[in-house]
Amino acid sequence: MTVDEHTLVLGVETSCDETAAALVLGGDDVISSVVSSQIDLHAEFGGVVPEVASRAHLESLNPVVARAIVEGGIDPSRIDAVACTIGPGLIGALLVGVSAAKALALAWDVPFVGVNHLEAHLYAAFLEDTNLQFPLVVLLVSGGHTMLVEMRDHGDYRLLGRTIDDAAGEAFDKVARFLDLGYPGGPAIDRASDAGDPDAIRFPRAMMDDGLDFSFSGLKTSVLNYVRREPDVASVDVAASLQQAVIDVLVHKARRAAHEVGATGIVLGGGVAANRLLRAEIAAACAADGIGAFLPSREMCTDNAAMIAAAGWHRLRAVGPSPLDIGAFPTMPLLDQALIR
């Protein structure tokens, strides 16, 4: 099939705790994007409970897809392909989306495309800025991932660095829970930091000048130890100081990565990319270095299906459809495209 600017892709995303569907035309024109969040269901557990997530996906998926089609104002017969996250993520959650998406493709007699969730995050920025020039450095930060990726072209990536232990968002989640700041941790730390002093406590900046990999588990431990030692410390000061430590490392390394590969700019992606201080500091660093800063909106940074449809469109054009006997790959790495076949 010809994949061009008229090709309309339905994206489906169920890898964690958001059920999402979106219609994207030509790989970058978002016709509709619907996200049904399960945050309230998981809040009482302080984290995502896989079985709760899977049940909610099964219940929400059809209505979410139907809404994306209605809001797009199109007839389903106009859809040219169905793209869906096949990994990484929670296996039971992924399987709901993959099963439904393959069924939709079969019933509509259109190609199915399996999409890597991490690769899709790289495409979120392209949905809002179609003039991005390669090479780019993408800083992908979420509760599950912290990585720096060089994007040399569509589908052509090089992993520059990644966390060797905890993800940045994981450190936020754990500290927020420890300080009783609320769930999810990222937004809670962001909010609490407003009232705190980022210089109150000097937490460690691990591996600052040591390659492009990250390490956040020592930082998390040091925060927890500090609070146990100084129980009267203001939570907002701890939050602000932790946030500053994490962001200092992220910005420092992203900047160096961009310099090393001669990137035209830095692209932010992942749930933590919604953090206001991170956005401000990346923007300032890029301005100082004379390169672009591409900061997708909060809706595009966090999990959504428009990025899945966009990545699916590129994959369909470059590689073609995926077979209908494909399953889900919970630990799929960014660069192992062979899994999608």
């Binding site: 099964l58 998926l61 399987l95 709901v96 099963s99 439904a100 069924a103 939709l104 509509w108």
Partner: peptide, 19 residues
């Protein structure tokens, strides 16, 4: 088995909606 039954139900529901 939860995961197995959900796969069948998700497939069936999506087929019914699309058809």
């Amino acid at each position: 088995l939860f995961t197995g039954m959900r796969v069948g139900i998700a497939t069936a529901k999506a087929l019914a909606m699309a058809l």
